[in-house]
Design a protein around this nucleic acid. Structure first.
Lengths: 246, 246
DNA sequence: TAGTGGTCTAGACCACGTA
DNA sequence: ACGTGGTCTAGACCACTAG
């Protein structure tokens, strides 16, 4: 558990009071709650203090406010499952295993029509293509098949993909980003069976990620995990708030 | 796109200035940025206004502040993929298909030792167990295998599971929640093949969710989707902020 | 018109870190 | 000792919504 605050601040007490009333069910969705001036008299606080608490709770999705009307309990945010993005090298080494990688492909080539569409570039423009099998103690762990717009990654062909993950390199050139992902269960193809050293056509977890920045699509990756690695751990939490201002 | 604010507020301008400097790379991770009083003179604002902006950006993970020392650019939050939780009935009907359900199991029974551990209850205590095959236009879509602590759901045995999803019922009795999930690729077992009307042992996406509240574990569910349904769409965003009070 | 929230100011006292 | 952030107050003006 976390450290107990020695002095709960006035803001904290007001905020805790409101959250407590909501989660106790005293105030439910759509209910009008007391006005700023009512909280001012109830807690002996100044209006600025009360206002800041209410603004904070509004920004975090617990309340909605209407100028001239009042403050209301907000519709709760829907829940989502979220899965962390981790550097594959760190993930493997975190288990105590040694990471090695087999570089299958590392080339610059022309984008197909579909790829150009995904990246928002002209068909035939240059893309960097890499395929790497990441292994833990020599046992294949994940097949990474990735396209990158070379505008976002210098010296693509000179990178030692056995030592550095493309994930970590793309994270370094980090502007504020966004992206989409799909997750699917598939059966490994013959080529994938060979790369992942599978004896039988196992069920695999396939992740396809596309991430972009203001300047365009950065990368599209297909990650494939088989057998005992084909499992991910996530957490359930309310939908994240939008990242930008105010 | 969203509506343009007619009057960007002073807070907005200060906040946009700081975010702009960070995302332009002028101020990078760990850098000390100007103090409150410096922003006060730069923008001709009062200290409260500046302070509120900085507190807001700190709470949202862009800055870290140290009393007596200064304000610094924070380590960026790691990225996560998040997948929405949706009522299976709404999900099916959103595609224009008709939802039907086949109730395989609907019973109260004693918890096994493992289940009691998962729920934090005594072995042998009563649990509600339901298995439902949800179908779209008669075609099996998802197999739901769910345990519920009956303290959180009244009249378990009288619910018409063909019409009401347990998801929606559990959402109604909504206190603030939290939970964990795992996602895995598996091959359907013989029984699952029969329930999902599969001819061959397809790759399936298996979700296991456990959700709880202050009062204890509410439910543990195993959701299984096969073939063309074994795909989920998610979004990539920064790690959600913790849900509770500041 | 009265009450509500939205914004901002000027000033105060405190606790903390650095020099 | 000085500057930093942390908290809070009292008051002001505005825009909006309701009755």
């Amino acid at each position: 558990m976390s450290q107990v605050d020695p002095k709960p601040t006035l803001r904290d007490r007001i905020g805790a009071h409101i959250i407590g009333r909501i989660s106790a069910g005293d105030w439910t969705v759509g209910d009008r709650i007391p006005s700023e001036s009512e909280f001012v008299t109830e807690f002996g606080a100044s209006r600025m203090t009360v206002h800041n608490v209410l603004r904070n709770l509004t920004q975090r999705g617990f309340l909605t406010r209407r100028k001239g009307a009042g403050t209301y309990v907000a519709e709760p945010r829907p829940y989502v499952s979220h899965y962390p993005h981790q550097d594959i090298i760190e993930e493997i080494e975190a288990t105590g295993a040694r990471h090695t990688a087999h570089v299958v492909t590392q080339e610059l080539r022309q984008a197909t029509e579909g790829e150009a569409g995904d990246f928002g570039i002209a068909p035939g423009a240059t893309l960097f293509h890499a395929r790497v099998v990441h292994a833990a103690e020599g046992v294949p762990f994940e097949l990474e098949d990735r396209l990158i717009n070379p505008a976002f990654l210098a010296d693509c062909l000179r990178i030692n993909l056995a030592k550095r993950s493309l994930f970590s390199l793309l994270m370094l050139a980090r502007p504020l980003r966004d992206g989409e992902e799909s997750m699917r269960a598939v059966i490994a193809s013959a080529e994938e069976m060979e790369l992942l050293q599978l004896d039988a056509p196992l069920a695999c977890l396939e992740l396809i990620r596309r991430t972009w920045t203001d300047a365009g699509v950065v990368t599209r990756a297909r990650l494939l995990r088989a057998g005992p690695n084909a499992i991910l751990q996530g957490r359930i939490a309310p939908l994240p708030l939008p990242a930008e201002l105010p």
